[in-house]
Amino acid sequence: MDKKVIRIVLLVAVVAILSVLLIDQLSNRAGKRPDNPFAYDLEGFDETDPGLLTHKEVMQIAIGHEQPVGFAYGYGRIFLITGEYLQVISPEGSAILKKELDESPTAITIGNKKQLLLAFDNHLVMYDLTGEELFRSMPLDEKAAIISVAFAEELIFAADAGNKVVRVFNHRLEELDSFRGTSNVSETHGFILPGGRFTLAVNGDDELWVVNPGLHSMQLYSHSGRLRRYWGEASFNPEGFSGCCNPTHFMILPNGDFVTSEKGLVRVKVHHPSGTLKGVVAGPESFPNGKDAPAVAADSEGNILLLDFEQKLIRIFEERKENN
């Protein structure tokens, strides 16, 4: 064959191959699509200033395939509710008890008289630490959705997200009262729950603190439901609470510090009793692609325990030594 013809054929082949490569390079086929030009950008907020980090992760406990609902720490054990089960786990992660419940619990807390209190949407049940039932409340109305409970010395408080009220019970689970967070004081709006997140806790001084997530506010109430004090600000910066439903979870340490957990920009922080930021336990970088706020608890050594709902883990964070 004429060399000229061969050259032309080779040239055409080279052009064809280059064309295919170029088209492939420019194509939008699966796996080669360009980045989303409209991506929601959290740059600047998705990494924590290392100087603010007060804790480091030291341990993880896998909790199996069941969907976790909540947990509490007390008497040297982790009490976990998942699906229709109550589980008791040692701090090292070994299972101590797994009790099947009649229905799905929605919240858990531990009392200082070895009581275990579980909420089930419209009623409460108190158990001893072995899972034996002690008391049961009367069923509340159909709209009730209790998603957080806390023991005070003489009372029990339950956050009812369905009715947007805090319900007050005695230790025999008889309902005594309820309040909406409103009063004659002009600055109180009542509880604003945009996303059905509603958490409360009682501190070592027997004071009731309730999250008012629509106001990004931590509010101190008297046991009769009068607003006494509040703190909190809306901000994407670590000093404040982001989004419209934060903080999603919180707990109060024995020294009065607050541990708060936020969704969206997932982060867990420690605030002084006054509300000023003390530090960050776990920033957004600890929850890659995470959206849901972890539940929080603390053990007797001051370690912070996080219940990571998405990874189905209990994650234990220890205070960094340089903070001491």
Binding site: D41, G44, A234, S242, C245, G264
Partner: peptide
């Protein structure tokens, strides 16, 4: 479904200056 929030995550960009 809307919470009619002042701080709407769908309306305000992260790091907004004012609401």
């Amino acid at each position: 479904l809307c919470g009619y929030c002042d701080l709407c995550g769908g309306y305000l960009r992260p790091g907004y200056i004012n609401r």
